[in-house]
Structures are given as C-alpha cells and as structure tokens.
Design a protein around this nucleic acid. Structure first.
Lengths: 243, 243
DNA sequence: ATTGACATATTGTCGGACAATATGTCAGCA
DNA sequence: TGCTGACATATTGTCCGACAATATGTCAAT
C-alpha cells in the first residue's frame, strides 16, 4: 500500500549558492551593469550576513561563467561574458560527452553558412576591410601551416562577428575551440591552402556584394571541404574530438 | 625612445585557479571518469599542499559549469554536464549581451530545422513513440495555455534528442531557456494550438518516414510561425529578450 | 530482515590572522 | 608645474583552527 501523503524533499540550499544566485539575479536583471564594481568581499559578507569565506565561494561560482572577473588583482568587476569563457565551458562539456567530429560538423553546417548569409546583411565597411586584410595575409602565408591555421580561424571569426549576432557568436564559440586542432591536422596533412583561399575569396566577394545565397553556398562548400579533409586525412570523422 | 627589451607581464595565477585547472584537466582528459567520486576536500587539500578553503574555492569554480556536482549533500562526484547547466550559463551570457528575439530566432532557424533533418536519420522506435505520445497530449491540452507550452517545448526537445547529437543538444540548450517565456506569451496572446499541432504532426510524419527534406521544411515553417507570432503579438521582435 | 543506537567521516559555516599588493596622499625636488 | 619617492590604507589570497549538521558504517536487539 502506497503512502497516502508524500512530501517534497525539502531543499536546504547552502548559503554560498543562495548568495551566488542573489548576485547573479542582480546582474542579469540589469540592476548592476557590466563594468560596475562590486562591493568588496568584506562589505558583501556584512550585507548578506555571512562570512567572507562564504562570499568567496559564491563569487567563484560566478567567476567561471565569465559573469564576474577581476581587473588586475583588485576589485571585482561585473563582466560581459565573452566568447572565450563560454567557449571553454561548453567545449569541455562537449569533450566529456565524447562528441564526434561528425556531430560537431553537423552543427557547424547549421551555423557557419548561416553566419555567411547574415554577414551579407550587416557587415560594415570596417569589417569588410578586416576580411580583405585577412585574405591578403592568407595569400602570404599559404605554405606556413601554423600561420595558415591562424588566418583560417580568424576569417571565420570575422565573418561571425560581422553578423553582429551575439547569440550566434556565443553558440558557435565552442565549435571554434574544438575545430582548432582538427583544422591544424588537416592543414598539415593536406596543405589545402589553395582551396581555402578560393572558398574564402568567394565568401568575401558575396558579402561585399550582399549576395546572401552565394555566401551561404560557398560557406557550405568550404565546410564540406573540411569534412572531406578529415576523412581523407584519416583523422577519424566518427571519432570523438580530442581536447 | 622605446625600451630595448620588454618583459611579459608575469602571470602569478592564484592557487585556487591552479588547483581548479588541474582538476579540470584530469576530468576532460578522461583521467577521472564521469560518475567517479573525487577525494574528500581534506584529502585534496593535502595532495595539493593547500588549505581546505582554497580547495573549496577551486571546486566552486568547476561546480558552476556542471562538471562537478554533489550526490545528496555528500561526496563530490564528477558529472556529465547536462543541457541545464550549460543552458543556464550560456543563456545568462546572452541576456547580458541584450540579445534580441531576432538574433535568437536566426540561430534557431539554423538549428531547429537541422534537428528535424538529422532526427530522420537516427530516431529510434522508442523516440518516435515518445513523439507520438507528445502529439496525443498536445491534442488534449490544445486550449490549456500552460500545458500547451509544456508539450510544445517538450516536442522540440524530443526531436533534438532524437538526433543523438550532443553537440547540437548543447548548442541549442540556451535557446530553449530563452524562448520559453516568449512561447508562453505567444500562446497566451494568439492561442495558436491548431497551427502548432499541424506543424508538429508534419514533422513527426516526416521523421517516421525518414523524409529529411520534409522534416526540415516543416520545422522551418514552424519557426516562421513563431516569428510571426512574436511580431503579431507585438512582443518586440527587435527587442532584447527578457530573462 | 528491520529497527535503533552509536561512532565516524565529511561538508557547510564561522572567526580570526597575516603577507602581498594596489590605491591614495603628500612632501620633496627638478 | 610635473615627476619621484615615502608612507598609510584597503583589499585580496591564503592559511589555521573550530564546530554543528548530516551521511555513512557497524553492530546489537527485536
């Protein structure tokens, strides 16, 4: 016979979590702006009625998400979480889930062509100039594997930034981080400088011309090349990505 | 005259960060498996040669990313970061960046149709059954706004899970969280039960038939409906999303 | 096999302490 | 005036020791 009444497990949240949530709420609700200084640890401890140790643990909780940071070794600062912080945290999650290249590539096929398309609508002159500069440098370092990797990654980041879509930037941050070593391996194995340059050039032209379809299409081709690169280089397309 | 030599700013990383990184490395490198128990705080403190307070701060740093968790109120456990942890952390980043509905919707247009397409290839019988159950429940709660919201969100999650693509699941986690209130507002304002059901039905049929194109297409239509819903409901398509 | 009593281990929180470093002030000197 | 150095102050990073609350493990009694 089942018990006639059942009680919820009462959740006695530790103080450091409560404090952390209070601070987080104040931040995301806009009560504290990015760039604002937080009170000192001692002040916070007094305000919340807990010890400094507890406040410190609460702070660490938020620090990892990039919401809080320190300028120098000093005062706490409310920070706009950049792509790095998000990328690191999400990509380590993906690593633990043993995400394969294939899975990663599928997501990239959803996001990179989209970035190309959207960039056509919103790229400023300055951003187009940065892309042009990147192309020039690409031609120069065509045979320097390490440098080529750098400009290749930079190109994709520039396109993504040209969309001015922060949701997109944050969503693709982990891909960036995880593809990095793979691109490096492909470049070393196949020296695909020419193919990369051609694809980038077409994407750039499309963005300058505002031709959404073409940008999307060439970004797609570029990503298919990437896939073929992994397959041809025997890098294990269906294998988990390495950190 | 510029100085003849320049030195890098020497980075005196605090101990809690070092400890945190060491633990993180051990985890993502697979040295410690998910599900494993970590040594007690006192043990860790001894091993690293620091105080328990320092170890605790290091632990908090990882706890936020969902890498570490506690079973009960006891021992530390290495955890596979779920979509909730990632979703919370990334979505608060998006909130702080004042991401607009439009930006969010653009990313969703890249990921949701993709999810539909991929689900056609990998959905198991059990998952199809879950989708079917969801459809039945959708018909039942068509006029109950709150319940309708629940099944709507669940449907999208089920489709995403049916792809078996963890990278995709993690990438779309924040969208989920941020769209939630918006869907609710749309449903209350427009009672779009019929349209939702029709779209879901078509996506479901396509997945069962393994028809990738159709699944993608209907998911796209569904998302366009969502966009029109925000616009018609005057919910501010170009306004920042509210937490 | 279940219950209760008891010792033990571990976490959450507290309080105080100190060294290292950044900040602010002010006098001294070109 | 503008720069330098000395000094007091504030704040963080780290340490130590302590205690209550709570899980865990053991064992006897029923």
């Amino acid at each position: 016979m089942p018990p006639s009444v059942s009680f919820d497990r009462l959740a006695h949240q530790p103080a450091y979590k409560v404090v952390s949530e209070k601070i987080r709420n104040a931040i995301v609700s806009g009560e504290i702006q990015a760039g604002d200084l937080l009170p000192t640890e001692t002040d916070l401890a007094e305000q919340f009625g807990v010890t400094r140790s507890t406040v410190r643990e609460a702070i660490r909780l938020l620090e990892h998400g990039g919401i809080l940071g320190r300028a120098g070794r000093k005062r706490l600062v409310v920070t706009l979480p950049g792509t790095e912080a998000i990328g690191r945290s999400v990509s380590s999650a993906m690593l633990m889930h043993q995400v394969t290249f294939e899975e990663l590539w599928q997501v990239a096929m959803g996001l990179e062509p989209l970035a190309g398309k959207l960039a056509c609508l919103s790229a400023t002159k300055e951003e187009k100039q940065l892309l042009a500069d990147n192309l020039v440098r690409t031609k120069q370092v065509m045979n320097d594997h390490d440098a080529l990797l750098e400009v290749e990654i930079e190109f994709h980041n520039l396109v993504a930034e040209a969309t001015h879509n922060h949701a997109l930037l944050l969503a693709r941050a982990p891909l960036n981080e995880l593809f990095y070593p793979a691109w490096g391996a492909i470049i070393r194995a196949l020296s695909p400088g020419e193919r990369i340059l051609v694809a980038h050039q077409h994407v750039y032209d499309a963005i300058c011309a505002g031709d959404e379809e073409k940008a999307e299409e060439w970004m797609e081709k570029h990503m298919r090349d990437f896939r073929r690169g992994i397959e041809m280089g025997n890098l294990g397309f269906d294998q988990p990505v390495q950190g």
